[in-house]
């Protein structure tokens, strides 16, 4: 009836920079979505528990530390364990081109690197959530 797209924006791992995550969170809010931001230094367990309790459609992960090859797949794995692989997982931050195919093979649906217009992320979410 009044369903809104709900998105969890999460910062896994140890880097302390969340400017990018906050810019994305704000852009999604302004596009009419309900965005839950959980702050810095979240473990994959915490992220997955939050995603499930908040009943989000999308988990948007942001990493600048280089740990994405371990942490992103851990999140998709845990979601699958909880029977929640229908939740869309997106990645952002400093992710080298070469790593993208591996991450996608692990269930990360899209990677949005530096310089991505926020509208591209919004469009991707709106299209793919509607198709869920």
């Amino acid at each position: 009836m009044n369903r809104k797209i709900r998105v969890l924006v999460a910062k896994p791992g140890l880097d302390g920079h969340d400017r990018g995550a906050k810019v994305v969170a704000r852009a999604l809010r302004d596009a009419g979505m309900e965005v839950i931001y959980t702050g810095l230094r979240q473990s994959p367990d915490q992220i997955v528990q939050a995603a499930i309790q908040e009943d989000v459609d999308v988990v948007a992960l942001s990493i600048l530390s280089g740990a994405h090859m371990t942490l992103f797949p851990r999140v998709t794995e845990l979601l699958a364990e909880k029977g929640a692989s229908d939740i869309l997982v997106l990645g952002g931050g400093v992710i080298p081109e070469d790593d993208v195919p591996f991450l996608k093979s692990k269930g990360v649906r899209a990677i949005f690197g530096p310089g991505t217009p926020t509208q591209a992320t919004i469009d991707f979410i709106e299209t793919n959530v509607a198709a869920r």
Partner: peptide
């Protein structure tokens, strides 16, 4: 009609250890 929901940030347990799932 959107919202930025940030209360969870401060509900994570102590800043040192955090709260495990």
């Amino acid at each position: 009609g959107g919202a930025l929901l940030g209360d969870r940030i401060r509900m994570q347990g102590s800043p040192r250890e955090g709260r495990a799932a």
